[in-house]
């Protein structure tokens, strides 16, 4: 499972960079979205994947029985998803506004807006 995830994450990072290097600003934002997802999956994969073992302590005991999944990476990913969501929502609004005032979605043609 870890090997499969490693390949999947690698491919996602590759796609993200490819999309970000293209000229269209819409594709740029798609690249950023894929990039943040790839980073989130990476946190999951490197901190160890444990199946079907929720980190719960049975009643009346001090320690959980047997192996449990580490809850911290899940909390990290959840936080990171929320942050990425906010930031990407902003960038979508930004490219919309950029398209409105510059009337092009080509990054090369945007260069001359700057004095």
């Amino acid at each position: 499972m870890e090997t499969l995830m490693a390949y999947a994450i690698g491919v996602l990072f590759g796609c993200a960079v490819y999309m970000m290097l293209r000229r269209s600003i819409v594709k740029l934002v798609i690249g950023l979205i894929i990039l943040s997802n790839a980073a989130n999956l990476l946190i999951f994969a490197v901190s160890g994947m444990t199946r079907g073992a929720p980190p719960l302590i049975p009643e009346g005991m001090q320690l959980p029985e047997g192996a449990i999944a580490d809850p911290l990476p899940q909390a990290l990913v959840l936080t990171a998803i929320v942050i990425a969501f906010g930031v990407l929502a902003f960038s979508v609004v930004l490219i919309h506004r950029a398209f409105e005032v510059v009337e092009t979605d080509d990054l090369d043609q945007m260069k001359d807006t700057d004095t």
């Binding site: 600003i25 740029l28 930004l94 506004r97 950029a98 005032v101 510059v102 945007m110």
Partner: peptide, 10 residues
Amino acid sequence: GERAQMEGAI
């Protein structure tokens, strides 16, 4: 949201 700000902002 002025024109000159867009390229730098992106």
